[in-house]
């Protein structure tokens, strides 16, 4: 009985949040002097224009899926990894270095770049996990600080040891075409890395819901003390989830280099490591939820891209809307108007 009431409430919340988000979008579009109806039409056209545009959704979603699922796993275990951005960059950097320095090109090169990127991201997150589990230092602060270090280290790397010797701009040499993740659907940018991201999300879902590892991670995340008294090692699980979470972000970085940019350069993440935090929040830390949330986010991005080109409605609207959605989700209880005292009294008076 109670369960159905809760589900009903949740459905009501979702509809209300969607409606309010659309309303905010309409207001923003109107404020640019455009017609919301026309904008909506262009938005949908932009998404379903052709196979390139649909493929583009997956291209944009790929790094968000990996980092978002990574954050979701960490948050579920009570480890607030805000460092996906830094882990992404370190993954990209190490992946590039491995790819460029290996003599042999081809699938082995790709595999090694991905594995090393995973390890790099995972080890970076491990620093925060060790500091948390031994000295109880806030992982939030540590991961944020590590972001700055790594982002700037990448800037340093592309100007020095990783700089393309034949160019003048701060970026690395090009990845050998044989070691790139090439499109697997012709005339689109849909690359094999997208499959890796989706498979990673499925594996994480399986891990969290069907294995003892996920079970222990969740137990530690929900109630550390009870998990400890129940014989589960808190430190071990914090380290585990941090490593997984950082590793996923690291893979995202490698894929961005070897599938999309084909070289390492600054600003390569497009802040997806921070968007990932929001994706995980919207998904309620569920790995498959993060997969879906990342796809929706990318869809909206592609749609508004078309609005920007044809109507001059700035693309920045996406981030305004995402911000609004997160606030609406976190503050959803404020939307339950029936709980407000003054409204209740009025009703009773009638």
């Amino acid at each position: 009985m109670m369960r159905t009431a809760e589900t009903m409430q949740r459905v009501k919340d979702i509809i209300l949040i969607a409606a309010l988000t659309l309303l905010i979008a309409a207001v923003l579009v109107l404020a640019c002097g455009a017609s919301p109806a026309e904008a909506m039409q262009l938005f949908i056209q932009g998404i379903f224009r052709n196979r390139q545009s649909v493929a583009e959704i997956f291209v944009k979603a790929c790094p968000l899926i990996l980092t978002g699922v990574g954050c979701a796993v960490a948050f579920q275990a009570g480890f607030f990894n805000i460092g996906a951005e830094g882990q992404f960059y370190l993954g990209a950097l190490v992946g590039t270095a491995v790819s460029l320095s290996l003599p042999l090109q081809g699938p082995v090169n790709i595999l090694l770049a991905l594995v090393c990127g995973f390890l790099a991201g995972g080890l970076l997150a491990l620093i925060a996990a060790l500091l948390k589990s031994t000295f109880n230092i806030s992982e939030i602060i540590v991961t944020i600080m590590l972001n700055y270090i790594v982002i700037n280290f990448l800037g340093y790397a592309v100007r020095t040891f990783l700089k393309d010797p034949e160019g003048n701009v701060p970026q690395s040499a090009k990845i050998d075409p044989a070691s790139q993740l090439l499109p697997i659907i012709t005339s689109t940018r849909f690359h094999a890395g997208i499959l890796i991201a989706i498979i990673a999300a499925l594996i994480m879902w399986f891990l969290m819901s069907r294995t003892t590892i996920g079970y222990e991670l969740k137990a530690v995340g929900f109630n550390q003390r009870a998990a400890q008294v129940g014989g589960i090692s808190v430190a071990k699980n914090i380290i585990r989830c941090a490593f997984l979470s950082g590793g996923l972000a690291g893979i995202a970085g490698v894929i961005e280099v070897i599938a999309i940019q084909k070289k390492l350069l600054e600003g390569i993440s497009a802040s997806c490591g921070y968007t990932a935090v929001l994706i995980a929040l919207i998904a309620g830390n569920h790995p498959l939820g993060a997969l879906i949330a990342a796809l929706i986010y990318a869809t909206v991005q592609v749609g508004t891209g078309s609005m920007q080109r044809q109507l001059g409605v700035p693309n920045a609207i996406v981030n305004i809307l995402i911000g609004a959605v997160v606030l609406l989700i976190l503050g959803r209880k404020l939307l339950h108007l029936e709980t407000y005292g003054f409204l209740k009294r009025k009703k009773e008076a009638k």
Partner: peptide, 21 residues
Amino acid sequence: NKMGLIGNMSVMENILLKETG
């Protein structure tokens, strides 16, 4: 509540807290 149970987990998961292995 603090030491015995993991409130956000199900009755089943709590019964098996020490037994999953």
